[in-house]
Design a binder for these strands. Structure first.
Length: 207
DNA sequence: GATTTGATTCTCT
DNA sequence: GAGAATCAAATCC
């Protein structure tokens, strides 16, 4: 399952369940069903952190699949990625959204601004916050049940998978490398990258 | 060594 | 709809 190009692996990750344990005890765990991901194709993808080669920050992406790559962005947010390519290929999948299926109360405590259950993990930084994930979990093995974060892949890929352009990326903005469960309420709203040029406006008024 | 930008979210207008 | 918050990595001089 894991080990191919990010776009190939992406549909298989939809419907997967990511479980986090708050601490040494099992009390306070939160589980999320992944409903939206984005593929980042490593050295082939201008939008990928691995596009310009290996650095201390992105080293995890160059490792074997099944590991967690966590990065810090905009000075305040953590984002979670699952390494999916073979060792050395640096492809990964960004977890963009999910549905909390266990530990809803704890998730609300971690995300006070979320007004509904669907808002708890609707967005990459929100998902990380709901799980209580930070850079401390960077590089852990998601396939190891003993890890603080554990990923359980579904028996078979979901049927209703939609795909489209990625959110918030300013390069390769049109590549259809975002995948989500069609119709799911927890999928984040599409937004073009802030710095991308405005789309052409047809001239309907007087010149 | 200094500057710029970013795989975002929240709040106010 | 627009702007602020705020850190690290990458880029430029």
């Amino acid at each position: 399952m894991l080990g191919g190009s990010a776009a190939d692996v992406a549909p298989a990750l939809l419907g997967a369940v990511l479980t986090s344990r708050a601490g040494p005890s099992d009390a306070g765990s939160v589980a999320v069903r992944i409903t939206e991901v984005e593929a980042y194709e490593g050295a082939l993808d201008p939008a990928s952190h691995a596009y310009r080669g290996r650095t201390a920050r992105n080293a995890v992406m160059f490792g074997p699949p099944g590991f967690l790559y966590v990065y810090f962005v905009y000075g305040m947010h953590w984002c979670l990625n699952v390494v999916c390519g073979a060792e050395g290929t640096s492809t990964a999948l960004l977890l963009r959204a999910g549905q909390i299926i266990d530990g809803i109360e704890l998730a609300h405590e971690r995300r006070p601004s979320a007004r509904t259950d669907a808002d708890l993990a609707r967005g990459p930084a929100r998902l990380a916050a709901a799980l209580g994930a930070t850079g401390a979990q960077n590089g852990i093995d998601l396939l190891d049940p003993a890890s603080p974060l554990h990923l359980l892949l579904p028996d078979q890929p979901p049927a209703d998978v939609a795909r489209g352009p990625r959110v918030g990326v300013s390069s390769a903005a049109d590549a259809p490398w975002r995948f989500w469960l069609a119709g799911d309420r927890t999928v984040s709203p599409y937004r073009r990258a802030p710095r991308a040029p405005a789309p052409p406006v047809p001239r309907t008024g007087p010149a």
